[in-house]
Design a protein around this nucleic acid. Sequence first.
DNA 1: CGCCAGGTGCTGA
DNA 2: TCAGCACATGGC
Length: 291
Amino acid sequence: MRDLPAPDFSLHASLTSGQTFRWRQHEGWWYGFLGRAAVKIRQEGDRLIWDASDPSVTGEQLRRYFALDLHLPDILSFIDVDMQIHRAIVRYRGLRVLRQDGWETLASFICASFNNIKRIEGMVERLCQAYGEPVALNGFRGFSFPTADALAAVPERRLRSLGLGYRAPYLRATARLVADGRLPADQLRSADYETTKRALLGCDGVGDKVADCVALFGFEKLEAFPVDVWMERVMRYYFRHRKMTRKAVHDYATQRFGRYAGYAQQYLYHDIRTLRATAPPVTATLSTVGR
DNA sequence: CGCCAGGTGCTGA
DNA sequence: TCAGCACATGGC
């Protein structure tokens, strides 16, 4: 068992805020993957206690995955510009945008479109069980995320049988794009946001929202601001309940929160979803205020 | 049962 | 450029 300093960090908020679909909580530990290696982690104050199935996994890799090298207080002061975002920051301080694998993020968020998180988790887990590699860590048994090569070879009907629905052909086509090298996933990490988003939009099943999620969670583009149904609801605060398109919401938020718009989005998203999950429905409030 | 879910692609104005 | 529509599936 090893440990790692983790100041200004909330493992729980980071893993439950809808940016990753693969981590599982079991007997006080979080189990997940770094590449092919299974990892178990728990937080004790300002430290992470952890172990991995592969001894070559380093603390530096974990530090990088959880973005612990970034100075979070500076990022949060930068986006802390009004009451709405301020409330989310106070509640979930320590939430960090993870640096996930680009291909895994792309494939996962193609599955995520017009879907709910519970079902996304099930779909991704079945993909891993069917086409990933088995890995064991103590009592935990899991499967690594399948490579693009592996998924490129899977017939559409097989993907449908895992419950992917109409996303099956999208995922297959995008896996082929990555496997053939037509989408240079490796280069996107060092490319700028616009270049990365344009490249991602060339994939089947990837529109503005999915491209922004993949740019933010998979390719470190912290200015990306994904707009889904939840963000539309949150952003009514800024638009005083007037009608707006998703593009208008996106452009407004990008102006407002600047180079850390992605962090603002993640705090706002986690805040409203957690609020809706734990409180009784407030549809009356949302639909009547401002009339 | 009907409604909703981290939307996208296609079509026709 | 933009509104309107079809699209699979499962949880609640």
